[in-house]
Design a protein around this nucleic acid. Structure first.
Lengths: 238, 238
DNA sequence: GCATTATTCAGGGTAAACACTGAGACACGA
DNA sequence: TCGTGTCTCAGTGTTTACCCTGAATAATGC
């Protein structure tokens, strides 16, 4: 049995490696390899075909999620555990899409206790999933139709968070301005932002309010936005 | 010589304590106390009067910055080292105001190497300051008149980031709508956001763009905004 | 003293964001 | 086959955000 640990922080790698060798003796008795970015994660997975891969989210080259996608594409049997600082809904959404329906995966926050990490490792090794308690409600929301965003709404959200106008969004997404406004309208509704018509007490700029609330709920976050910004500006320097 | 370590993460406390006991032998030979939130930081400082205090920024009860403010108010001689995950400009700005002109302080990111942390500790103990390399440019910006924000502009920035309209901001800050727009205009200028007049290629919603860029530059961040949100909604349920 | 600079605020105008209604296209399941 | 729901998008109208000029005030520096 083989395990792979990928994290750009040496401190965390050492901590995790020690933790696993000391507490997984009964179940596990193979080598533990280490990597420090997403590309290495993919390469080392191909090379050693580990049963279990620990991935940090925030890594140079390739994010943990994208690395997981690559790995699972070739080795769907691999157990993946995301080790993250964030409980952001974006990441849970993305992970959900990447993991095969019957695959085993884990999502644990770095604030987790040692026992929780060991527990998660054991669960995933035996084919179960383990999700950090703090993430539970986030997952619920991603599955609730009334509050979860459609891809269309999510796209629009990213755009306004980057500061684009309706017109710019329309051009970028090959839509009409009206279509963009329509997406935004349903987005505002799902976020529970009051309009100008109802209740003149609550005066909000819906656009900015939507960005604020989405940040708060972890639907988006700064590093995700920066990725999009880079992607869009390289994609259309017309 | 006495040292105090305050962090809500046990892992980080242990790591730091080991690091200091092993590498500070020549300089330091006293007890190391530990706390796990801001209030404890203040209490333990009063009790033990340490020469050096390590403070995490994100802590329950009282943030690291506010704890530092309390501590320095009573014991201005104390050397304070902020240990943060973030290089956000907000925090550097706040720390700058809190530390007395001749006080010794440090600001190190948690991604720092062990050597850097030891170096910072030694520097502060001998009365010098130590600032993480990654923060240097942020500090430069806080001192440059052309790019640093005035309190007025900062206030306006917080408000639009929370999603308030011009009208709502005017009421909250006891200003005219025109005055609010004036503040926003100079804010946009300092952030380098192109207006509608110049360059019709770049189509931005300045309001949202300002929020995005400010987040990116660490002028604001989510947890700071949440504090303001709470403060404003309790302060004016008129 | 005077010049410089920043801040607040006015008026008038343009363009963008938002509200409301409703129609056509498409997929899903009874 | 017929709903039922979702997404796109048109038309029309209101509100808000932003642009520009400019004046009164106060603080700053020489």
């Amino acid at each position: 049995m083989t395990i792979l640990i990928v994290d750009d922080e040496e401190r965390d790698r050492i901590w995790l490696k020690n933790l696993l060798t000391q507490n997984l003796g009964a179940v596990h008795a193979g080598p533990i390899y280490e990597g420090h970015d997403g590309l290495e994660a993919v390469e080392l997975s191909q090379k050693y075909k580990p049963q279990l891969v620990f991935l940090d989210i925030k890594m140079p080259q390739l994010s943990g999620i994208k690395a997981a996608e690559q790995i699972l594409k070739q080795l769907p049997e691999t157990g993946v555990i995301i080790l993250s600082n964030f409980s952001d809904e974006v990441y849970v959404r993305q992970l959900w899409k990447v993991v095969p329906p019957n695959g085993a995966f884990g999502y644990v926050l770095k604030s987790a206790s040692d026992e929780q990490v060991v527990e998660a490792a054991k669960a995933v090794l035996s084919g179960d999933c383990w999700v950090h308690p703090g993430i539970a409600r986030v997952i619920q929301r991603t599955q609730n139709r009334a509050t979860s965003l459609t891809p269309a709404e999510y796209e629009a959200l990213i755009c306004i968070a980057l500061g684009m106008t309706d017109h710019a969004i329309a051009r970028k997404l090959y839509l009409t301005e009206k279509a963009v406004q329509s997406r935004l309208k349903s987005l505002y509704a799902k976020l529970g932002i009051p309009g100008r018509s109802e209740g003149h007490e609550t005066e909000f700029n819906q656009r900015c309010r939507a960005v604020y609330l989405s940040n708060r709920r972890g639907l988006i976050n700064q590093s995700e936005l920066d990725d999009w910004e880079a992607k869009l500006s390289e994609g259309a320097p017309t």
